[in-house]
Amino acid sequence: MAVPEAIGGAAPTIDGERIPSVIVSHVDIRYRIYGSPKRPEESEEEGAVRRLLSRGSQAGLGVQEVHAVKDVSFVAYRGETIGIIGRNGSGKSTLLRSVAGLVPPSSGTIWLGGRAALLGVNAVLQKKLSGRDNIWIGAQALGLTPAQVRRRMDDIIEFADIGDFIDLPMSSYSTGMAARLRFAISTAVVPDILIVDEALATGDEHFRARATERIEEIREQAGTVFLVAHSRKRINQLCTRVLWMDGGRLLGDGRPSVVNGLYGRKYGRHRQVWKERYEEIERVMTEQGPEAARELLRRWEPEGNW
């Protein structure tokens, strides 16, 4: 039996030999948020006492659940660079942390074919420790032995390019320096799956160029790269496939041009135009049947496969 058809019309299948590196199946992630009970709309007349009393009677006192990722499924293959787009708070980071094995999914399953390394702006290094101490911790957490860390220490420091700051506490680093150090640590070992969470946004031009080279290297070594970026340009440059997260759901999965297009219809400059067009299609569909609707679609989306 051959490998199933490409999921979501990602990078074109050359033959049936594509090897999956990440399988995400029906994953839900719910967070518990403490100390912020959901309050019903309060009318002015309700006194403080009443409010105090009613607070206690609410279900889950002081605990709220945030449904960050809702039933997301996809399969990623080796050699793919997958961009994740979506607005702030759409569940991108949470999903990727889960893929990296750092945040357990509430339900659903994730399988990995190899080792995942995540680097992100939020990746917490120990603020009070020096860059060098953090390299020890980070590199060993990625599975390096002390001997290997010692051997690669100079490379990591050189790539991070933070000079004498390496022996100062991280709390004295600028955002860009911390981001470079994180990137250097995470790519010290070539992971099978590299997850880059907006880390490149903070670096300067020179660093971004070198980081891009390193991402390319990793992909050439048959790895899979996930990339969260807000710049459409970078996504188009680097990625072979794009996932679109929206309010915790996966709304799009496919070639960058296609998914970016779909994204643009909801959030872009011409969103009103598209809204009207979609309504028009709905109307035509019910009044004149599917054939007429398809005709309209062909007119508005000449590149679509209708």
């Binding site: 199933p4 029906h26 709304l251 809204k275």
Partner: peptide, 26 residues
């Protein structure tokens, strides 16, 4: 906001996903 896509991305049923993962030793 503008419209959302007509089609949701295709989803591999759980059993098939599991089988795929098993076959590749994930």
């Amino acid at each position: 906001l503008g419209p959302e896509p007509h089609h949701q991305p295709p989803v591999l049923p759980y059993a098939e996903a599991e089988e795929l993962a098993r076959r590749h030793g994930m």
